[in-house]
Design a protein around this nucleic acid. Structure first.
Lengths: 204, 204
DNA sequence: CGCAAATCAAACTGAACAGTTTGGTTTGGG
DNA sequence: CCCAAACCAAACTGTTCAGTTTGATTTGCG
């Protein structure tokens, strides 16, 4: 019954899940460690056996979420882009997956936490930096780079082209999503396709 | 020496300024009312003469900031747009003013506060809703509408065209700005002009 | 001047909460 | 079946902080 066994890993995971649920529902400062313990179905003392502090728990939990997101993402990455029609399909898919996922209550709450706590929690800042620009943006940029190599898009600054594509999605998530807790209006696919269409005009 | 006199308004303003400084520096939950009093050079008790609670103070202060921003903004609005070259200039100006202002430490801190507290402070949510989409986006959209009427840009969905323009600026503010406390890298004007150039291809 | 409103400093109240300690109970491998 | 590791419930500690109370002091209008 030593720590670090299968059993211990399961308890850690159990705590992580409870903590995540609590944090998403009430925010970080709105969640007491007593409440985390209750949500996880674990005594408060056990909490402190597995995690030294609230901050360590927070970083561990959010780091895990981001990592698991990262594992599910590559399906969008390794595509060859052959012609304009094909690029349109790929971008449409990326836009749709991105917006429909990120505009759920859970992910919006996640963003809120990151933005609020990043300023005072170095661990979260590090996770954000090595994820959002280094992985997510880079992945979109890679798609565009392949498209450029195939002659599908013009010779444009790839960083700016990436921002021009990501930007409108960000307006949906940050301007519409964050402002409407509980009743988020996700744009339909047709609307996103219009954005893609507009975008393609700029880069082809 | 009645309340609501010139003198009283001055004290209110004095408190607002102290509170703003404190909130921007340490965040809302990181600022105690004792500290607000100290920053404002006022006793704690006087604080509670002018503001019923910390929340009321917060909403009042941030509401004031947003309103003052709003007054300074219209210089960008009432322009007729005659040709493509002119539109380029106007958009370049909008982009520059927007990014260079919004990427200062103060405005980034302001965003952090809004995003973090909106979820639990209805007053802030209301301010955000009647400002960001209803005023700021509408103002940009108005420019584009006039450009469309003048035949400078195509028949496009104006909401989407607005998002395509605002979006890339948002990537600078939210992705780069929020992730780099204290050492924000503002894109130079040339870089923004490249964005405008790219954008114009999409809408003309 | 004189007084009433405004302000101040400082102590206080009550609640919330991170993290600890205690002492008893469950669990599972040997 | 036994015992040590893991777990639990609950009380406790020390602190922070919003908001209040008290009682003294300042301010400026009449």
């Amino acid at each position: 019954m030593e720590l670090d066994s299968r059993r211990a890993q399961a308890k850690r995971e159990q705590i992580r899940q409870g903590a995540l649920a609590a944090f998403l529902e009430s925010g970080v400062s709105g969640t007491s460690m007593d409440h985390v313990a209750a949500c996880a179905g674990v005594s408060k003392q056990t909490l402190y056996v597995y995690f030294r502090s609230k901050e360590e728990l927070l970083v561990d939990v959010l780091g895990g979420i981001v990592a698991s997101l990262d594992e599910r993402a590559p399906l969008l990455a390794d595509r060859t882009v052959t012609d304009r029609e094909h690029l349109r399909e790929v971008l449409s898919e990326v836009a749709w997956v991105m917006v429909s996922h990120l505009m759920s209550d859970d992910y919006l709450a996640l963003f809120r936490i990151f933005i609020a706590e990043m300023a005072t929690t170095p661990g979260l800042l590090a996770i954000w930096r090595e994820t959002v620009p280094a992985r997510f943006l880079a992945r979109v940029e890679a798609v565009l780079e392949r498209a450029r190599e195939a002659g599908v898009i013009r010779e444009v600054d790839l960083d700016l082209a990436t921002r021009l594509f990501i930007g409108p999605m960000m307006t949906f998530v940050f301007l519409d999503g964050l402002a409407r807790p509980g009743e988020v209006l996700v744009p339909n696919r047709k609307r996103l396709d219009q954005v893609v269409e507009l975008y393609l005009r700029a880069v082809t």
